[in-house]
Design a protein around this nucleic acid. Structure first.
Lengths: 209, 209
DNA sequence: ATTAAAATACCTAAAAATCAGTAGAAAAAA
DNA sequence: TTTTTTCTACTGATTTTTAGGTATTTTAAT
């Protein structure tokens, strides 16, 4: 089996050199280069074969989330592994959405990196341990003050989330729209938010919706 | 190291017997019993030590999601692994939320089960391959019509989700509030929804927020 | 049986969002 | 370079939500 042609994309030279050293002893892997910008790696892959790209999120010209998409557009078979310090759940999910095969934090162990690389080239998705935690328990940080909702409030919350107005909800539940307005008001107050947009966000983050 | 005292909870006897056979050769594991209902396992753990529970979602008296929570309340150190046929993302996430250490589909290989057990007792979270796919690409089923958003639209969507009005957003981005209204309108149109409540729901379900 | 909580409904007024358009400038892609 | 997309901004009218209350009737809990 041929060696995995691997590129490293990071705006920080230290990271690139560090990864090169860490990976130089891998038998089935060959570093073809380090790149400091999105345009640099895109130019490279347009004329060279690359099997695996270790990609940072923070780059000078384009963010790694979008870059990932461009890479997959240019070369669908190239496996992209994100190596980043960003711990925001939405960033992680977006990279996967855009075709990345995994996500590791930069403090991951070399074992984890090795493991994720092997999983990724097999076509699987692989996260490091911390990332797995972030994905699985998104709300842990957020849920302190989860309000207790009454049955009616939950019911109406769901209908609001479905995009229905107070008028429509009132008709469906055979209630006055003014009653729905009151419930709406109470929901907003209980969650400590200021409008439905924030309300729906809070409710989904707390798995109520 | 003492053997892992393991219980199996499933309403289907065949599954219990099958798992017993599959796991009987594991050196570091001892099956202490099979249980057909939630109340049965809860009664058992109230007087017996159990290290690991393999838990189904569908049970006659209580669903596995809630049962998981009760188990952890009764015995925080007991590791719960879900073994189910349900592929709904929300169910998977809820079990983890309620303290489960992993989720496998019933068609998982014995190797995957073994691997997840060892990860789980180490305190990590572990999913089988298919489950990982479901978690990572939830949208694949849902997102057919996932609209492509421009950079500006994503930015404004996030601010709307934070509960900010067009006026406030306009001030923050040094734009006319009327411009924000236009973006708002375009977002609503692109998602095919009728107001922000539904917009935020759609966006969170598609992991954009 | 009594208290507390939940559900119902209303008022007034201001603020915000939605609908249905148009249209020029800037940036990106072809 | 030309074309297309994105970003910007507006008009005008309508609908809906939000904020500040109050108040009665059901239900549920003690």
């Amino acid at each position: 089996m041929a060696k995995l042609l691997t590129a490293i994309v990071d705006d920080h030279p230290i990271v690139i050199e560090g990864l090169k050293v860490l990976l130089q002893n891998e038998e089935n892997l060959e570093i073809v280069g380090g790149f400091y910008s999105g345009s640099a790696i895109l130019t490279y892959i347009s004329t060279n074969q690359v099997d695996l790209i270790l990609l940072d999120i923070t780059l000078p010209d384009i963010n790694g989330i979008e870059l990932c998409q461009h890479i997959k557009e240019a070369s669908i078979s190239t496996v992209v592994l994100i190596l980043s310090n960003h711990t925001e759940r939405s960033i992680i999910m977006q990279t996967i959405q855009n075709g990345a095969s995994g996500y590791l934090l930069k403090n991951s162990s070399i074992d984890e990196l090795r493991h994720c690389i092997s999983e990724a080239v097999k076509g699987n998705i692989c996260y490091s341990k911390e990332v797995m935690e972030i994905i699985s328990r998104p709300s842990k940080n957020h849920i302190q003050g989860m309000p207790r909702l009454t049955r009616r409030e939950k019911e109406i919350l769901a209908l609001i989330a479905a995009g229905k107005t107070s008028q429509v909800i009132g008709q469906e539940l055979f209630l006055s729209p003014l009653t729905i307005d009151t419930h709406r008001k109470n929901l907003i107050q209980k969650f400590g938010v200021k409008n439905v947009a924030e309300l729906i966000m809070a409710a989904t983050q707390q798995q109520i919706l």
